[in-house]
Amino acid sequence: MPSFSHDPLSPKDAADVVIVGVAARGLAAAARRAGLRALVLDLFGDDDTRELALAAIPLRRIGAFAIDPADLYEQLAIHAGPDIPVVLGTGFEHQPEVVERLAARFRLVGNGPPTLAWTKEPLMLARLLHNLGIPHPQVFADHAPAGMRTLEKRIGGSGGWHVKPASESRGWGWYLQEELQGRTVSALFLGNGHKARLLAFSEQWCEPSEDAPYRYGGAAGPIRLDPSIEASIASALDAVVNAAGIVGLASADLMLTGDGWSLIEINPRPGASLDVFDHEPLPPLLRLHFEACRGELPDLALLTPEAAGMVRGAGVFYAPFSFEMRLDPLPDWVADRPPQGTRIETGEPICTLFAAGRDVREVRDTLARRRDQLWRDLSMASRKAAE
Rank of each mutant, 00 (worst) to 15 (best):
A243W: 03
L282A: 07
R170Y: 04
L151F: 09
I84F: 03
F44P: 00
L378K: 09
P8G: 12
S382P: 00
G26V: 00
P349G: 11
I78G: 00
L123H: 13
L129A: 02
G248R: 07
L249N: 05
L282P: 04
L330E: 04
S379T: 14
L237N: 07
D336F: 05
L285Y: 12
T346D: 10
L367Y: 03
F354C: 00
Q177A: 12
G347N: 10
V99C: 02
R361Y: 06
G171A: 06
E207L: 06
G45Y: 01
V240N: 01
L125A: 09
A117L: 09
N111M: 13
N131Y: 02
E362C: 02
L300F: 11
D275F: 13
E100Y: 00
E179R: 15
V185D: 04
I19P: 01
L285V: 12
P298F: 10
H130A: 15
I246S: 01
P96T: 12
K195F: 00
R32K: 13
Y175E: 03
I344S: 08
L327P: 05
V360N: 02
S322E: 15
A200P: 07
E179F: 14
A220P: 01
V109H: 05
V247I: 15
A385H: 13
P339I: 10
P137D: 11
A126N: 04
P349T: 10
A28E: 01
L378R: 07
P284D: 06
L303D: 03
G347C: 09
H136Y: 06
I57T: 06
T366D: 14
E348L: 11
T150Y: 11
P281C: 08
A196C: 11
A55T: 04
A146W: 01
S322I: 02
R215I: 04
G217T: 06
N267D: 06
V360P: 02
R294G: 01
P8S: 11
G260L: 09
R101T: 14
P145H: 07
T119Q: 02
R369G: 00
E324M: 13
A335G: 02
E168C: 14
A80S: 15
R149T: 14
S202L: 09
L54P: 01
A244K: 01
A144E: 08
L52F: 04
S235C: 10
K153H: 12
P283W: 07
P208L: 08
I246A: 02
P8C: 07
P82E: 14
R101E: 14
V40N: 02
L39C: 10
G313Q: 03
F277C: 08
L129K: 01
H194P: 00
N267T: 07
L59Q: 05
L72M: 06
A34W: 02
A34T: 03
F92Y: 07
A200T: 07
